[in-house]
Design a protein around this nucleic acid. Structure first.
Length: 338
DNA sequence: GATGCGTGGTG
DNA sequence: TCACCAAGCAT
């Protein structure tokens, strides 16, 4: 046991949470399907993002049961996820919905191993669903828990390695209580989010202060250095004729597959076209400079893969799933032009 | 074990 | 400005 008084540690957390815990929409339900949706949305995504734009409330209204998501088409699920990023998550969520319908008669499974076996559900998400929906005594380790544990135990090794993960999960297993795992796990994560924060931890008011060994919290947890960002240019065209706009759909093998964007052209094909906008956005380790050219009064340069391009009515634009950088630039351009 | 995957917030 | 980070997972 890593602590002398684990019961006191657990009790401190649960008491703090009962006073300071936020009343998020996904904490007002124990429906495992709704809990799963929230957990998948929150993977590598901050609470404020999911909360502010109403993604969770809208999604569970649109797909209240696994069967509802299982029968939706690709464009519909991508549109419901638009703005959240990591679109693979919603595809896996649909695969999980189909598996629940096909192998569990549409009833969300109760056993941890069955939850863990669903597509897109790893060790963290399985533990989160089991503890939040069913109050089962399962450990969780996310970025918040990793930060709290690495500081409480003054862990000087890297956490983004197999050995580091093993250590964090071992602490999580040993400390999760048998009875109140729902409240305990919620509290541990929320302390990491509200108090034991990345840059400026509020150690003076932290209820785990008496359990905590680190003298230099902001130096923890230790991680390897990130991959260097690569600069990339993207040259796209705004082609509008007779109330229609030309769009490109990403292939199944591509990133953002199934989504629509403005068609790309080689830079040298666009020398005669006026530049309409210039913006930048990040995707994985790339920094993309996106330039949009006006081809409305010029013959449109030939595409290398015209089979992926299609004319759409301008009215259809809001219903077509589109990556955020293109949604934003189109909203701005069309507001200016019309 | 390392890498790819989106987007928005932060100091 | 820009690197880093966030309720991870699959390959």
């Amino acid at each position: 046991m890593p602590l002398q008084q684990p019961a006191s540690f657990q009790k401190s957390l649960i008491q703090w949470f009962s006073k300071e815990g936020e009343d998020y929409p996904w904490r007002q339900t124990t429906d495992p399907w709704h809990i799963l949706i929230s957990e998948v949305m929150l993977q590598q995504t901050q609470v404020a993002t999911v909360l502010n734009k109403g993604f969770f409330v809208r999604f569970i209204a649109q797909f209240p049961t696994p069967a509802d998501l299982a029968r939706a088409d690709e464009q519909t699920i991508l549109s419901a996820w638009e703005g959240l990023g990591y679109y693979r998550r919603v595809r896996n969520l649909q695969k999980a919905a189909k598996a629940i319908c096909d192998y569990h008669e549409g009833i969300f499974p109760k056993q941890y191993e069955q939850i863990r076996a669903l597509p897109g559900i790893g060790r963290y998400t399985a533990g989160a669903v089991a503890s939040f929906a069913y109050n089962q005594s399962q450990p969780i380790v996310d970025a918040n828990v990793a930060r709290v544990f690495s500081r409480v135990f003054d862990y000087q090794e890297r956490v983004d390695t197999t050995a580091g993960q093993k250590q964090l999960w071992s602490w999580a297993e040993q400390l999760v209580p048998a009875k109140n795992a729902r409240a305990y796990n919620s509290a541990l994560m929320e302390l990491g989010q509200q108090v034991c924060t990345n840059k400026t931890p509020k150690c003076e008011t932290c209820i785990l202060k008496k359990f905590c060994s680190t003298k230099d919290p902001t130096s923890l947890p230790k991680k390897g250095s990130a991959k260097k960002t690569v600069l990339v240019d993207e040259h796209c065209i705004l082609a509008i004729q007779d109330g229609k706009i030309l769009l490109h759909q990403e292939k199944a093998s591509a990133r953002r597959s199934g989504m629509w964007k403005l068609p790309e052209r080689a830079h040298h094909q666009l020398e005669a076209c006026p530049l309409l906008s210039k913006s930048t956005y990040g995707i994985t380790h790339h920094r993309v400079t996106l330039r949009i050219y006006d081809t409305r009064n010029i013959s449109i340069p030939n595409s290398e893969n015209p089979e992926q391009e299609k004319w759409h009515q301008l009215e259809e634009l809001p219903t077509l799933p589109m990556p955020s950088p293109f949604r934003k630039v189109l909203d701005t351009l069309l507001a200016d032009l019309f």
